[in-house]
Amino acid sequence: MKQLITHILFATDLSRNSTHALRHAATLAQSTGAKLHVLHVSEPLSDDALITMRMFMHDAGSRAEALKARHEHVKAVLTERQKNFWAAMPKADRHIQDQVETIEIIDGYPAEAILRRSKELGCDLIVLGAHDHGFSHTFLGSVAKRVLRRSEIPTLVVPYLDTTQSN
């Protein structure tokens, strides 16, 4: 029988719940031997934000530097979250990190970018977390719905885990 899952795309919005979803993606990668691709999509700035930048930053070079700083900040957060996630993993399971094939930050509209990258990378499964109030408030509410509606491959949406409530 042909292996069904060989490449998993884990899409993160960098919210607290994304760590919970990554745990599921890593477990699936471990159990299937699949390669894991980590993706964060930075949404384009709104027209209002761009107008505000132009009003207060007249120099095009300054605007470009501000956009670059925004991207670098997201990269630093993603790097730190990945580092902390793997450090918190039990030593016996840290080898799963070797299955991470790519870690990317791309600009675009999240649902479209997730679907496009999943095809480009030859993924068999998309894993993302349910809505949480993180870096991008709308990332995994409407985005998850759009991905689910349009995906041609299985998509796992990991429910939000409220760690503030005790059982």
Rank of each mutant, 00 (worst) to 15 (best):
L4Q: 13
L4F: 13
I5V: 15
T6N: 15
H7A: 14
F10S: 03
F10M: 07
A11T: 04
A11H: 03
D13P: 03
D13K: 07
S15H: 00
N17W: 00
S18Q: 05
S18R: 03
T19A: 10
A21F: 02
A21I: 01
H24L: 11
H24S: 12
A25Q: 00
A25K: 01
A26K: 00
L28C: 11
L28Y: 04
A29F: 06
A29K: 05
Q30G: 12
S31R: 10
T32L: 08
G33E: 09
A34E: 06
A34N: 06
K35G: 12
L36W: 00
H37D: 11
V38E: 07
V38R: 06
H40C: 09
H40D: 06
E43K: 07
E43C: 11
E43I: 09
D47K: 09
D47T: 09
L50F: 05
I51Y: 08
I51H: 10
I51W: 07
I51T: 12
T52A: 14
T52D: 13
T52P: 01
T52F: 13
M53R: 02
R54M: 12
H58A: 15
D59A: 14
G61A: 13
R63P: 03
R63G: 08
A64Q: 14
A64Y: 05
E65R: 15
E65Q: 15
A66D: 11
L67Y: 05
L67H: 05
H73V: 09
K75R: 11
K75Q: 11
A76L: 10
A76N: 11
A76R: 09
L78V: 04
T79E: 15
R81K: 12
Q82S: 10
K83H: 13
N84F: 03
F85P: 03
A87Q: 10
A88Q: 04
P90N: 09
K91Y: 05
A92F: 03
A92T: 09
D93L: 14
R94S: 08
H95I: 08
I96Q: 01
D98K: 12
D98P: 00
E104W: 04
I105W: 02
I106F: 07
I106V: 15
I106Q: 04
G108M: 05
P110A: 15
A113M: 10
K119W: 02
K119A: 14
E120Y: 02
C123Y: 02
C123N: 04
D124S: 12
L125H: 04
I126V: 15
L128Q: 01
L128N: 03
L128D: 00
L128V: 04
G129D: 01
G129A: 06
A130N: 08
A130D: 13
H133D: 14
H133P: 03
G134M: 03
G134D: 00
F135L: 14
F135H: 05
S136H: 08
H137T: 13
H137A: 13
T138K: 05
L140P: 01
S142I: 09
A144V: 09
A144H: 03
K145V: 13
R146E: 15
R146N: 13
V147T: 08
V147D: 06
R149L: 11
R150P: 03
R150N: 14
S151F: 05
T155R: 06
T155H: 08
T155I: 12
L156W: 01
V157I: 15
V157L: 11
V157F: 03
V157T: 10
P159A: 13
Y160E: 09
Y160T: 02
T163Q: 06
Q165E: 15
Q165R: 14
Q165G: 12
Q165C: 11
S166K: 14
